[in-house]
């Protein structure tokens, strides 16, 4: 379990990194925290011939609120920085981010793993991807052709596939508005494992009443997905139970050794309900 040989390049700035990526083409891979990539390289499931390390780009390791009240998270912000929120920028509006961090692996993974790395890796069960889809995040990517903003709905394209071009670097993730009534929950057989199913909701609550909301799932398709059928139930004033049932009926999760399609649908039912209850009680 030793990685195949590669050449190591340390990026000094984002533009330099992206130029190098353009030069090296398909043989290169960006490494940030490396918490998924290095494991895959140790198994030789990934074998880039060039590794472009952007870990030193400290300007991407910052998290702040913008003038509109949105949250801007630099791509190299670690899960642990979000969890501990040293600058106190999350507030009640983004408490869901802090709480979600406890579902990501374990402490020594969260100290190295980065928000941007997780998003760019695009695992179908990854908590960050699910949060992005639920909260309508926007992805700021920079490449040789300049900077562009990709909405979450267009970012995750399938299993470990995103809309990032090979020479683009994800620099920032923007959560445009506070989500005080959002929650994410999941189920795995063992603490810290990838979820069998992860569920997240972001409820619109007015005067203590749920008027609608966004409902999303991880682990039921090739990427995190919104579930409009379940959202319609919320808009129509339906119960959490009904919302959860609608979600369970709407999806057709793939079966594997950890669970059948039927079981995963049942987990969807349980987890959406739990997420709704947790979100509304915030």
């Amino acid at each position: 379990m030793k990685p195949a040989p590669f050449q190591y390049h340390r990026a000094r700035d984002v533009d330099g990194a992206s130029r190098l990526l353009a030069e090296l083409g398909d043989d290169a891979k960006v490494i940030a925290g490396g918490q998924s990539l290095v494991a895959m390289m140790n198994y030789r499931l990934a074998r880039p011939r060039h590794l472009v390390d952007i870990g030193g780009l400290r300007e991407l390791d910052r998290m702040h609120r913008d003038a509109e009240g949105g949250l801007r998270v630099g791509a190299l912000t670690t899960h642990h920085t979000v969890e501990s929120d040293p600058a106190g920028v999350l507030g009640a509006g983004f408490e869901v981010l802090r709480k979600t961090m406890t579902w990501i692996g374990h402490l020594p993974i969260r100290t190295r793993g980065t928000v941007g790395g997780s998003m760019a890796h695009g695992d179908a069960t990854a908590e960050w991807c699910l949060l992005a889809v639920t909260l309508g995040a926007e992805f700021v990517a920079r490449g040789p052709r300049g900077e562009r903003v990709i909405p979450a709905g267009d970012f995750f394209l399938g299993y470990y596939t995103t809309a990032l071009d090979p020479d683009e670097i994800l620099v920032e993730i923007v959560f445009p508005r506070p989500a005080p009534h959002a929650a994410l929950t999941e189920f795995a057989e063992r603490r810290g494992d990838f979820a069998l199913v992860a569920a997240a909701v972001d409820l619109d609550v007015e005067d203590g009443e749920v008027r609608g909301g966004r409902v999303a799932l991880g682990g039921v398709a090739s990427a995190a997905v919104r579930v409009p059928e379940a959202e319609r139930v919320l808009t129509a004033g339906g119960s959490f139970e009904a919302c959860a049932s609608a979600a369970a009926e709407a999806v057709e999760p793939p079966a594997d050794a950890s669970g059948s399609t039927h079981y995963r649908k049942e987990l969807v039912r349980t987890l959406i309900r739990r997420a709704c209850e947790e979100a509304v009680s915030r």
Partner: peptide
Amino acid sequence: SATGFMDYKVPTAHE
């Protein structure tokens, strides 16, 4: 089925 601890689920202090 198992070539790693993702698939061979050794329980932790949580379990």
